[in-house]
């Protein structure tokens, strides 16, 4: 490199939050250092505050009516579109996963492929889950009786700490595909793939507010989400192994009887078949009766 023509300095991205379809900085003005897997500085990520969490809940609530009343077919199309756009940005996600999780090229490829395919898998569930968990009930009387699943509402998700992309997709997709909206607290130490994923959501016809992404330590926002009276459900997967913190959040969630998906003892194997439990955890069953007769 000759001294007269220095290398071009790259334009670095500011890593922000994703709330209501916009990318604001934290209201607090705080940020924290994010390092790569080798401990090298990568970026200052926004440190979400209690106020950011409340804004995110408000955005999620506002989006719930529209998102949950879209046809299942339409939600399927939109989730599939997310997969399409993500596939299109594979190189970016490969870099993000290698950087944040320290994976080799082959492993990173596997993770990104699995994340895209998982979105496709969940997209297909939008108009099928009702047929698998709903039922026509043969009650002993002249009544039509039909039970169908409905989304529970706003779900606060503490995303997995280790698996910053595949794990993230695997907890967000099952919550939203059935019509819930979410506030997602990204992996504390590996938050950047979540923000890149938010950029995909923002350009894939997912209405603003359906997924809101916060970055920062769980302690700064999770307690507020757990006690927030406009949050309907809590996914504590990201607190795997931290029984004490998880129990405290579950206790807070009891106030308005949030549905709680408890933290597992250890972070799940995200490459395994996810089954349908993550969807049914955030579904209500509605039964409709109607008399039959002339």
């Amino acid at each position: 490199m000759s001294p007269t023509t220095p290398a071009r300095a790259s334009v670095r991205k500011t890593w922000k939050l994703y709330i209501g379809g916009a990318f604001p900085r934290s209201e607090s003005g705080y940020s924290y250092v994010v390092n790569d897997a080798k401990g090298q500085f990568v970026a200052n990520a926004a440190m979400a505050s209690r106020k950011d969490a409340r804004d995110a809940v408000q955005a999620a609530r506002k989006a719930f009516g529209g998102w949950s009343s879209k046809t299942a077919y339409n939600r399927a199309q939109i989730l599939y579109r997310v997969a399409e756009v993500m596939e299109d940005r594979r190189p970016q996600f490969l870099d993000a996963v290698r950087q944040s999780e320290g994976l080799g090229s082959r492993q990173a490829t596997q993770v990104v492929d699995d994340a895209v395919d998982r979105l496709v898998w969940y997209a297909g569930w939008a108009d099928k889950i009702t047929q698998v968990v709903g039922s026509a009930n043969p009650v002993a009387g002249p009544y039509f009786n039909l039970s169908s699943p409905e989304p529970t509402g706003v779900v606060a998700v503490v995303a997995p700490q280790r698996s910053s992309l595949l794990g993230l997709v695997s907890v967000v997709a099952p919550a939203i595909v059935t019509g819930n909206t979410t506030v997602v607290l990204a992996s504390e130490e590996r938050p950047l793939p979540a923000i890149t994923f938010a950029e995909v959501l923002a350009t894939s016809d997912v209405p603003g507010g359906v997924v809101n992404v916060l970055t920062g330590p769980p302690a700064a926002t999770a307690p507020w989400l757990a006690e927030h009276m406009d949050v309907n459900a809590l996914d504590l997967t990201g607190l795997a192994g931290d029984d004490e913190a998880a129990a405290a959040l579950e206790a807070s969630a009891a106030e308005n009887l949030k549905r709680v998906l408890r933290a597992p003892a250890a972070e799940p194997d995200w490459e395994a078949d996810p089954g349908i439990d993550r969807m049914t955890a955030f579904l209500e069953t509605k039964t409709v009766w109607h008399p039959i007769g002339l």
Binding site: Y73, Y80, V120, W121, A123, G124, W125, D127
Partner: peptide
């Protein structure tokens, strides 16, 4: 829509 719907079943046949 039929292709889209059944595409989604291809990987869920066990259900």
């Amino acid at each position: 829509a039929h292709f889209f719907y059944y595409a989604g079943w291809a990987d869920k046949l066990e259900y």
